[in-house]
Amino acid sequence: MLINVPETVVADGLRGLAAAHPGLNVDVERRVVVRGDAPVAGKVGLVSGGGSGHEPLHGGFVGVGMLSAACPGEVFTSPVPDQMARAAAAVDSGAGVLFVVKNYTGDVLNFDMAQELAEDEGVRVARVLVDDDVAVRDSLYTAGRRGTGATLFVEKAAGAAAEEGAPLERVEAVARRVGERSRSFGVALGAVTTPAKGTPTFDLPSGELELGIGIHGEPGRERRPMMTSREIADFTVEAVLNDLRPSGPVLALVNGMGATPLLELYGFSAEVHRVLAERGVPVARTLVGNYVTSLDMAGCSVTLCEADEEILRLWDAPVETPALRWGR
């Protein structure tokens, strides 16, 4: 592992983020990443966060056209309510703040408490829950579907709406609609190793894969002998389409879990496009890369969002963050 000691891995990463992106305000000690021009007058603030280890989610999506602030917790551990309330206060211009929350029990509870703290300080807060993973209904960390790749779609669309000056109710409605129209499915080709443990967190023998894995290494639907990229695409896309059932074009995120080479991800993306074409589902936009990761896990996930004209417009709107940028 490319670290000093496990105890400082998050702080070290935040110091590096600050050095590489001086336009961000990175509070290493209190664990809050804020866009440099916040609060922006008349603009809804957009705040998200979660355990570290999923980079570039969330700190890498702070900037123009996306998040106003992010709260990184310890590795695979929810940030605390004080962080979230501090972030809300830092980005509130009087137009209100939207919390984007992945459906993990710790995140949900802590964002709920943070909302109460922020509202006690006079900040108007709305909250949207992202629960897009169709692999399992309940898991070690959740009640209901897990929140995974659709978080990127929600943050991008809601961030664009906020950048346009939409009121809090409208930004919340956009975020909720994108989440409702999005579904994901992930596959592990290798186990994840956390800095504190130093060894794989679960046993995945060579020559096997886990279908439906979570981004913390949670179990999926089933374990099988290794499959080809074509076979994985068939299984994964079918699982998403069986739940989503889109009637029009989709946004597609072909996401790496942290250790899968980009060459392989692009090859897998070609197979995802093949399956969608065979099912008669047009693809409006595709994003390929490591965006919602799980440290050093080898694997991939597919997220599809049924897109309409407004969602496509918000997706195409300018964005400038450390990990996502176009149109500026």
Score class of each variant (00 low, 15 high):
1 M>I: 10
9 V>F: 00
12 D>W: 00
22 P>Y: 08
23 G>R: 10
24 L>E: 06
33 V>R: 08
36 G>H: 08
37 D>A: 12
45 G>P: 06
45 G>A: 10
47 V>H: 06
50 G>R: 07
52 S>L: 11
54 H>M: 12
55 E>F: 07
60 G>H: 02
61 F>E: 03
64 V>W: 00
67 L>M: 10
77 T>D: 09
78 S>A: 14
79 P>F: 09
83 Q>W: 01
87 A>L: 15
95 A>Y: 03
102 K>Y: 05
105 T>S: 15
110 N>P: 09
111 F>A: 10
116 E>L: 13
119 E>L: 09
126 A>G: 14
126 A>I: 06
130 V>E: 03
138 D>T: 08
145 R>G: 01
146 R>M: 06
150 A>N: 09
151 T>C: 13
151 T>Y: 10
156 K>N: 07
157 A>E: 02
165 G>F: 10
166 A>R: 15
168 L>Y: 03
171 V>Y: 04
177 R>I: 02
190 G>I: 10
194 T>G: 01
197 K>G: 11
197 K>F: 13
199 T>A: 15
200 P>R: 09
224 R>G: 09
230 R>I: 00
231 E>M: 12
231 E>K: 14
231 E>A: 15
239 A>R: 15
242 N>T: 13
244 L>E: 09
245 R>F: 00
246 P>K: 11
246 P>M: 13
246 P>I: 12
249 P>L: 00
250 V>F: 04
251 L>C: 07
252 A>W: 02
254 V>M: 06
258 G>W: 04
259 A>C: 09
261 P>N: 11
262 L>Q: 13
262 L>C: 07
266 Y>L: 15
272 V>E: 00
278 E>L: 12
283 V>A: 03
288 V>E: 09
295 L>N: 08
297 M>V: 06
297 M>H: 04
299 G>T: 14
301 S>N: 09
305 C>S: 15
309 E>G: 13
310 E>G: 05
317 A>W: 02
323 A>G: 11
325 R>G: 14
325 R>P: 04
328 R>A: 13
328 R>G: 14
